[in-house]
Design a protein around this nucleic acid. Structure first.
Length: 475
RNA sequence: GCGCCUCUAGCUCAAUGGCAGAGCAACGGACUCUUAAUCCGCAGGUUCUGGGUUCGAAUCCCAGGGGGCGCACCA
């Protein structure tokens, strides 16, 4: 191209129409018509069908494909040379009249074809695509370029995020951003990544959850806040866990656990409609109905049904261990009764749930930041949303009594001191904030990646994260 | 972390101990209504890496690397 005086990487192109706009303006043209309308489109060449003096090419922009008709006697110089050198994968701009072919396909009858960027590497076969998972994850740009289904999944992801953000803003929630680098991890039980701040000569941890900072903002007077937070947990990687993942957390002053369920249901059902245009998804052989309202059931009542007997975190650990044994649920010696009740739920009850259910009431022992239930100090006003056997969201009436919070933290700090890498020392700055007064508050957290997995109908979290963490390629 | 599977041309895949191949893409040519265009021609390899067994290894064995899946921990 350079020999012909054509720059293979020009600086700009004046596009007048996207592919979708051309199709949108001419939905029902009869075959072999001419519109007299001239447009300039631009996109990546995905297919070329040459016929000597007449060629067809399909270019795709981010709204979809449009066909170019390239008749040698209507092309103006230097378009002939561009066409002669054209490869699948090149970016081109094409100007000409909107027409339909004899077969009826809407096309641009090109008079000027410009090369916008040359593809030096060949694009994989459009028929077979790229299926090797390693290539798809390492070279996501190639995956997106070739695989329609990959584009579909990320379309679902970003529509879901946009929908939830829109819903929250409409409800007067303020989007905020809180620290990712934190002096001390908190807000969840998880092993953090640790990094070094040279200027301060201290270690910092990457956040495992934004929860404590968001509640401090509510103390500061922000009555409705949310953050779409990238969290980092230094733990195992599998089809449901990524070292970095996205959580949506929202806090609303003066609300309780029921308001949290209302909000969660609203956000998720709206997102499903906005992203998919329907309210059901499939998972393997099963069809999951997402239409509201979703049932709200008490945890202990459901456990009673599935276990055939009552359990409660007030019971003796020996008795609860016997229940675990009877259902082949493994446990550790140092687990208290609340943790045992929780694992019975997690192992026995949760996998049986398909359609959405809000399960309400969790042991305080496994809910260190949730307000305890009035009249029962061993249970917390907390819910989890379970869909298709998986936890998609959870939330609670926030614990705002600083003395009780301090006691809960001290329990966790003892575990940390005993060597538990997922437990953390008491966060004294958070306790101090509670001492200034946190109003009654409803908080929720939604696992965005898992939600997108559900809506996008894929089974690996790597399929919903653009660039998942992988080992570096060998040099 | 442990177990199982996998790695061959740019992509998708054959070849199961006996000359490393096909389709698509690329490259050269023909073709004015194609859309997985068609036709003719041509080229394409560290079979992930290293070692071993064998007359002979993509194939069998050992070690290492990447990836996938499952189990354990977690959301």
């Amino acid at each position: 191209m350079r020999e012909l005086g054509e720059d293979p990487y020009p600086s700009r192109y004046d596009r007048t129409h996207t592919a979708a706009a051309v199709h949108g303006e001419h939905p029902d043209l009869a075959p072999d018509s001419r519109t007299g309308e001239h447009v300039a489109v631009a996109g990546r060449v995905v297919s070329v069908r040459g016929h000597g003096k007449l060629s067809f090419a399909t270019v795709r922009d981010w709204t979809g494909p449009i066909q170019l008709m390239l008749a040698i006697d209507r092309l103006e110089p230097p378009s002939h040379e561009v066409l002669a050198q054209l490869d699948v994968g090149d970016w081109v701009g094409a100007a000409g009249e909107v027409v339909t072919t004899r077969k009826g396909e809407l096309s641009v009858d090109v008079t000027e074809l410009r090369l916008l960027s040359k593809a030096l590497r060949p694009i994989p076969s459009s028929w077979y695509g790229v299926s090797d998972p390693e290539t798809r994850y390492r070279q996501r740009e190639l995956d997106l370029l070739v695989n329609e289904d990959s584009r579909r999944i990320f379309d679902v992801r970003f529509k879901t995020l946009a929908s939830m953000r829109r819903s929250l803003v409409e409800l007067d929630f303020l989007e905020v951003d809180t620290p990712i680098l934190q002096p001390q991890a908190g807000g969840a039980l998880a092993r953090p990544f640790v990094t070094r701040a040279n200027a301060l000569d201290i270690d910092l941890t990457l956040r495992i959850a934004p929860e404590l900072y968001l509640k401090r903002l509510v103390v500061g007077g922000y009555e409705r806040v949310f953050e779409i937070a990238r969290n980092f947990r230094n733990e195992g990687i599998d089809t449901r866990h990524s070292p970095e993942f996205t959580a949506l957390e929202a806090y609303r002053a003066f609300g309780d656990v029921n308001d949290g369920m209302d909000l969660t249901e609203h956000l998720l059902t709206t997102a499903a409609t906005d992203a998919l245009g329907r309210s059901s998804v499939t998972s393997g052989e099963r069809t999951i109905d997402l239409s509201p309202p979703w049932p709200r059931r008490h945890l202990l009542e459901m456990l009673d049904e599935v276990l055939g007997r009552k359990v409660h975190p007030e019971m003796d650990v020996v008795e609860l261990r016997a229940v675990c044994d009877a259902h082949e649920v493994a446990y550790l010696e140092d687990w208290g009764p609340g943790k045992l009740v929780f694992v019975l739920y997690d192992q026995v009850l949760q996998p049986t749930i398909v359609d959405p259910v809000f399960i309400v009431g969790y042991p305080v022992e496994v809910s260190p930041l949730a307000r305890h239930t009035d009249g029962d100090p061993t249970m917390a006003d907390r819910f989890e949303l379970v869909i298709d056997g998986k936890e998609l969201a959870n939330g609670y009436s926030e614990l705002n009594n600083p003395d009780e919070q301090r006691e809960r933290f001290e329990t966790e700090a003892r575990a940390a001191a005993a060597g538990d890498l997922e437990s953390h020392p008491a966060d004294l700055a958070f306790i101090r904030a509670l001492e200034y007064g946190l109003p009654p508050t409803s908080g929720i957290g939604i696992g965005v990646d898992r939600l997108v997995m559900l809506l996008g109908e894929v089974s690996s979290i790597r399929d919903v994260i653009l660039f998942p963490v992988l080992r570096p390629e060998a040099s």
